[in-house]
């Protein structure tokens, strides 16, 4: 049954990918990308990777669609005609595809318990998580504690991405002006549309509540800072679409958003530094409290909060930077 479902999802993925490439209407391509992400999320879920599925659904199908639409509002909605025949590109693609297909022949079968990836450190993580960290969700333990360096790196990649996008979108203006529309601010929103406004008002509190649930339930179920940050940003973006970006910027002003971007990443770093000051290794949370297990849990909650704050700030900064830019610069 599962294999049937997986084959169906994978074939839908291929069909969607082909449709994205072949569509010259960029709006349609963006919507298809959202569908692609949703199918991918379902695929991850079939593979029992609920945390990744949640991230893919929130970021891939949700936020990136909004950001792509924001980018499309600045450019043309149709693809320009292609230059020349696709001869070389076709050859390169076919060679690459053949290489990848050839490489999969050496791949262990799906779910093979003897696969190298399941023999290396994974058994140790599974055995030691209840003992050392004491939380049910091993993914969060691996992400937040065992491999905290990697997650720190990810947070700083997100941070760097936000800085880069802000610099690029500021154009000829100083970066401090990047959220301010040049002329005729689109602060109108959907004020005159009763139904979306009322439904949005009804839903936004629950979106925030769900984001907080995902944030703080990450130790027990799928979730964590990345997913919660995306959901939180989605709630604010919905608010901005309903009442206008100006009002959303009043609620969450620009210095606060930029502070969240830097502050979230710094909070993560600071937890690591405090661990060092208390005599442990960098990001070794055991020294944070008298009880080593409680220290680990405290450290994970703190760094997840840092991740959530940083991701919310980054996504909102990018959204406002896109929204404030008028086309034709």
């Amino acid at each position: 049954m599962t294999i049937l479902f997986a084959v169906f999802l994978l074939s839908m993925l291929v069909i969607t990918a082909v449709a994205i490439v072949r569509s010259s209407d960029l709006f349609a391509a963006v919507m298809l990308l959202g569908i692609f992400s949703l199918l991918m999320a379902a695929n991850f879920f079939v593979l029992d990777a609920a945390d990744v599925a949640l991230t893919e659904a929130a970021v891939g199908a949700g936020i990136s669609t909004v950001l792509f639409l924001g980018a499309l509002a600045l450019t043309a909605a149709r693809e320009r005609s292609r230059l020349g025949p696709p001869g070389l590109a076709l050859v390169v693609s076919l060679v690459m595809a053949a290489t990848v297909v050839y490489a999969t022949f050496d791949k262990p079968a799906l779910g093979d318990p003897n696969a190298p990836v399941h023999q290396h450190v994974a058994p140790w993580y599974l055995e030691q998580t209840p003992e050392l960290i004491g939380i049910p969700n091993v993914v969060t333990a691996v992400l937040g504690s065992f491999r905290a360096y990697d997650t720190l790196g990810e947070v700083f990649v997100v941070f760097a991405a936000a800085i880069g996008v802000l610099f690029i979108l500021s154009g000829d203006r100083p970066v401090s002006q990047v959220f301010r529309p040049k002329d005729a601010p689109s602060t109108r929103g959907l004020k005159h549309h009763l139904i979306p406004r009322i439904v949005g008002k009804l839903l936004i509190p629950f979106i925030f509540l769900f984001a907080l649930y995902v944030q703080f339930h990450g130790e027990y179920g799928p979730g964590g800072g990345f997913q919660a940050g995306a959901l939180m940003a989605a709630g604010v973006i919905l608010y901005a679409l309903l009442v206008g970006e100006g009002r959303a910027l009043e609620a969450l002003p620009e210095p606060l958003l930029k502070g969240m971007v830097a502050g979230g990443a710094l909070l993560y770093l600071l937890v690591g530094v405090v661990c060092m000051l208390l005599g442990g290794n960098f990001l070794d949370y055991s020294v944070l409290a008298a009880d080593a297990v409680f220290g680990q849990q405290l450290g994970i909650i703190l760094i997840e909060a840092g991740v959530g704050i940083a991701v919310t700030g980054v996504l909102l900064c990018i959204f406002h930077a896109f929204a404030a830019r008028d086309s034709g610069i």
Binding site: H193, P196, V199, L203
Partner: peptide, 15 residues
């Protein structure tokens, strides 16, 4: 959630 959002998105699209 679906019963609230699905008609709303239809309304927004038609509008």
């Amino acid at each position: 959630f679906l019963l609230l959002t699905s008609p709303t998105s239809s309304y927004a699209l038609a509008n």
